[in-house]
Amino acid sequence: MIDIHSHILPGVDDGAESTADSIAMAKVAQSEGINTIYATPHHLNGRYDTEPKVIEEKVHNLNEEFKKLNINLTVLEGQEIRINGEVHEDLQNGSAISLGNQSIYTLIEFPSSHIPQFSKYTIYDLQRDGYLPIIAHPERNAGISNHPNTLYRLVKRGALSQLTAASVAGHFGKKIQKLCFKLIEANLVHFIASDAHNTDSRGFFMEEAFDVIEKRYGYGLVEQFKENAHAVMTNEMVIADPPVEIKKKGLLNIF
């Protein structure tokens, strides 16, 4: 299994604080069947800005440490990039990196309170430059929670999205879990990832999330999400059914 979103790198953001924490996270990830994990520290989110060189060095060191401990987990480079008007320029000049550092897939984070009006233009700019933006944890964004078709319009424009496993499993509450189901049923979700920060309060929950999805939608959808994560690693196109507008009385469309 491949996890495209985690904060397993030690000492760079609000994830693992030490190598010991990273090792503990790796053991839990391995126990859940994860064999490849993208380290995606925050980039320009107002608190953290981890340089690509630091990510490269820490990913190398962590992989070496896991080998010594016989932990069967490969860490790949990435970033969770806070959306801004210069994301495409940052990727072009190397101050920000895509998933795997060489792939077409970029993990994009919105502010938790809203979707910036310029987002649709940034999504266009990224695709124009050959990237495929993946919107991280849309179910935890207030703008999308209040107006789900905001995500529909972004996906219709070519964006992809990734739900947090803990959200699908219900660990962020029933309201967020219900929104996850609505987004899945509208073909607005392409990945399930952990966004793990530690081994307890912000853990992996990947197995639990896929169990929920299998019981509700069948194993075929579980396989589709797993294949999409593999497509990121091989730099191939994901499986994406046409998005469906979410019908809601009185819904205001922002975009």
Rank of each mutant, 00 (worst) to 15 (best):
D3S: 02
H7P: 04
P10H: 11
V12G: 00
G15N: 02
T19Q: 11
A20G: 05
S22Y: 02
M25E: 03
A26R: 00
A26Y: 00
K27E: 08
Q30P: 00
S31N: 04
S31R: 04
E32H: 00
N35L: 03
N35D: 14
H43C: 10
L44E: 15
Y48W: 11
E51S: 12
V54Y: 01
E56A: 13
E57F: 10
N63I: 06
F66C: 03
K67N: 12
L69M: 10
N70M: 03
L76C: 15
E77C: 10
G78C: 08
G78H: 07
E80Q: 07
R82K: 14
N84I: 02
L91V: 13
N93P: 07
G94T: 12
S95P: 02
A96C: 11
I97Y: 03
G100D: 01
N101C: 08
I104P: 01
I108Y: 01
I108S: 01
E109L: 01
E109D: 05
P111N: 04
H114T: 15
Q117T: 15
S119W: 04
K120A: 12
Y121L: 15
I123T: 07
Y124W: 15
Y131T: 05
P133Y: 10
I134A: 04
I134C: 05
I134V: 13
I135R: 06
E139F: 02
R140G: 07
R140D: 10
N141W: 05
N141I: 09
N141C: 07
A142Q: 14
S145L: 14
P148S: 10
P148C: 09
N149R: 05
R153W: 13
R157S: 15
G158W: 09
A159Y: 08
L163N: 09
T164S: 10
T164I: 14
G170Q: 04
F172Q: 03
F172I: 03
K174H: 11
K175C: 08
K175P: 07
I176P: 08
Q177H: 08
L179R: 09
N187V: 13
V189L: 05
F191I: 07
N198Y: 03
T199A: 01
T199D: 01
V212G: 00
V212R: 04
V212T: 09
R216C: 03
Y219I: 12
G220E: 13
L221W: 05
E223K: 07
F225R: 04
K226N: 07
E227G: 12
A229F: 01
A229M: 02
A229Y: 00
H230V: 09
A231G: 04
N235R: 05
N235Q: 04
M237N: 15
V238W: 04
V238P: 01
A240L: 06
K249F: 14
K249M: 11
G250K: 04
L251Y: 09
